[in-house]
Design a protein around this nucleic acid. Sequence first.
DNA 1: AAGCTCTTGTTGACGCTGTCAACACCGAAT
DNA 2: ATTCGGTGTTGACAGCGTCAACAAGAGCTT
Lengths: 204, 204
Amino acid sequence: MAERDRAYHHGDLRSSLVEVAAAMISEGGTASVTMRAIGSRLGVSRGAPYRHFSDKTALLVAVAVEGFKRLNRRLGASDTGASPSSVEKLRRMGEQYVRFALEHPAHYRLMYGKEALARQDQPELREAAGALLENLVEVIRVHQQRGEIEGGDPRAHAYVAWSAVHGLASLLIEKQIDPNVDVDELIRQTTRTLLGGLRDRGQA
Amino acid sequence: MAERDRAYHHGDLRSSLVEVAAAMISEGGTASVTMRAIGSRLGVSRGAPYRHFSDKTALLVAVAVEGFKRLNRRLGASDTGASPSSVEKLRRMGEQYVRFALEHPAHYRLMYGKEALARQDQPELREAAGALLENLVEVIRVHQQRGEIEGGDPRAHAYVAWSAVHGLASLLIEKQIDPNVDVDELIRQTTRTLLGGLRDRGQA
DNA sequence: AAGCTCTTGTTGACGCTGTCAACACCGAAT
DNA sequence: ATTCGGTGTTGACAGCGTCAACAAGAGCTT
């Protein structure tokens, strides 16, 4: 956020719109995000955004895509630091995933809420979410080769893992979980149970 | 739906409103549910619902509560039939859970979408969702006593299990999962992995 | 039977929303 | 200097949730 508002016609609206919309979502929830409010916050009229996004939905999709990118970056960064040799790395990825959701609940909700978005398939959104999955699949494949995770289609394992962390994140965000429980411990237990199941070889 | 529309002032609006709202949600998604449309579908003006619900939110909460009750009933019913002696019963509960979500996606979305509902805590909603959790905790406790599931706080295990099935249901509903994968198999794999993790005793 | 009152449904109005069409403006290319 | 295309503005419209004022049937009291 350094060299903006330079040129006349506001310079680089488009990205400012996404930025401001994301900020407003974090501050006041999706409901507080209105085309008029976004414009006014940028010193611009209500109609201006329509020169850059065909639709309010299109703008929100851009915001969601940005969210997926950030989440993806964060999961990648959870790699660094002492490179633990075991599945501990995978466990930490799960932890970071849930933590991201807790830190940006409204943004996270938007990312997965088809309700507001995606009347038709939004290719950009699909691609951003797909990248997340691909990275996860790759990590799982590595651990399979190390013999730390049972064989079989790594994609299926990835879906199972994704389900576990997304489910936990979602329940936490929607306050379906007793606020008295230790969240950190619950996250740890979830990721451990998940990995325990992935490691096991027998059928249930 | 047999003896309705009898008495004068429409007879039993309130429950008709919930019924119709639920139907409209299933048919056209949450966006299609408008106070005016609900009323008109019942041959009633737009203002009538306000005699029974303070708010559109209040009406939607009632719909969500109804959804939780149905889901709960269904999970209870998954008990019957050959009473499998092992954790197979628990696995089937998870299966039924996901299936419910797939059959009523918009309704399920509403049940967990704090966005639309619950500016403040809605005690009725909390209670209905709480009943779901309590039942799950009870089942887990039984299996713990049978030595089929590792010890520790059954509530924590319940949260983990709930996260897994809710996450899978959510990803499926929001079409985050490749439509080419075999959904039945994925559900089976998820529940198996989960139970494998719960059975395991070591730490990851 | 008459009247009163409470509950329930109706209607007009308000402010808010997303969106479109017509317009205004500036920067750049001719 | 003029033209032109991309960008921002403004007035208008329909639809929404909601409220206040009104109407009308139901049921009780006398």
